[in-house]
Nucleic acid binder design. Structure first.
Lengths: 101, 101
DNA sequence: ATTTCCAATCGTAAATTTACGATTAACGAT
DNA sequence: ATCGTTAATCGTAAATTTACGATTGGAAAT
C-alpha cells in the first residue's frame, strides 16, 4: 500500500474535530452560528439582510454548516428555517473541550 | 443590530475565532497539536517521522499553526523546537468555550 | 573552507474555497 | 394556470490550500 494522503490514518476524533473546525473557519459562518444561538432559528433571508453578501453565497455557507452537521433546515414553505443541530453541537462542544483540556 | 462598541468587539472575536478554527481545520494540524500537548514540545523531524508526509508539507502546516499563534518555535541549532503557545492557547480555549457556552 | 544536518522556502500543480449573477425548483396564493 | 416569493443550484472566475520535490540557509563539526 502506498503512502498517499488518502491512506493516512487519523483518529476518528481528530478527523471529526478537524471537520467541525473547518466549518467554523470562516467569520461569516461563525457569525451565522452566533446569530442562530441568539435567535434559536432563522430563515436564509434574515441572514441575507444582515450580511453584505449575495443570497447564493449565504446559501453556500449554510450548506457547509449543514454538511458539517452543525445546523439543520426545516422546510416551512416557502421559507426554510435553519436551527442549530443540538445533537451535533453537543458533540462538537465536547470535542473542542476535550481538545483544549 | 445597534452599532455599539460591543458589536465591533464581537466582530473581532468572531474573526479571531474563525482564524483559530481555520488553523484547526485540518486533521494533520490537529494531530500535530495533540502530539505537542502530550510531548509538550517536539522537533520538526519528529513529526516527519510520524506522518507519511513530505518534510516541506509538515513545515507548511507548522507555519500555519505558527501564523495562527497556536505554536511557537525555539531555535535550538540545528533543530527547531516547537511548543504550544500557551498564552494564545488559553485565548483560543476561552473563545471556543464562550462560543459553545 | 568544506561538509553535514535540519528545517524553511521556492516553484509547481491539483484541488478546494469563496464570491458573484443567473437560473431553476418548490410551494402558496391569486 | 399563472404569478410571487424564497432559497437551492449552476456556471464562473479568482484566490487559497495542500501536496510534492528541489533548493537554500544557518549553525556546528570536521
Amino acid at each position: 500500500m502506498e503512502k498517499t494522503t488518502e491512506n493516512i490514518i487519523f483518529k476518528d476524533d481528530s478527523k471529526q474535530l478537524a471537520r467541525f473546525a473547518k466549518a467554523l473557519g470562516h467569520p461569516t459562518r461563525i457569525a451565522i452560528l452566533k446569530h442562530l444561538e441568539n435567535q434559536s432559528c432563522c430563515f436564509t433571508g434574515d441572514l441575507v439582510d444582515i450580511f453584505p453578501l449575495a443570497q447564493s453565497t449565504i446559501s453556500q455557507h449554510l450548506k457547509e454548516l449543514k454538511n458539517a452537521g452543525l445546523i439543520q433546515g426545516e422546510v416551512n414553505p416557502p421559507k426554510i428555517k435553519y436551527c442549530i443541530n443540538k445533537e451535533n453541537w453537543k458533540i462538537a462542544k465536547e470535542l473542542f473541550q476535550g481538545f483544549f483540556e
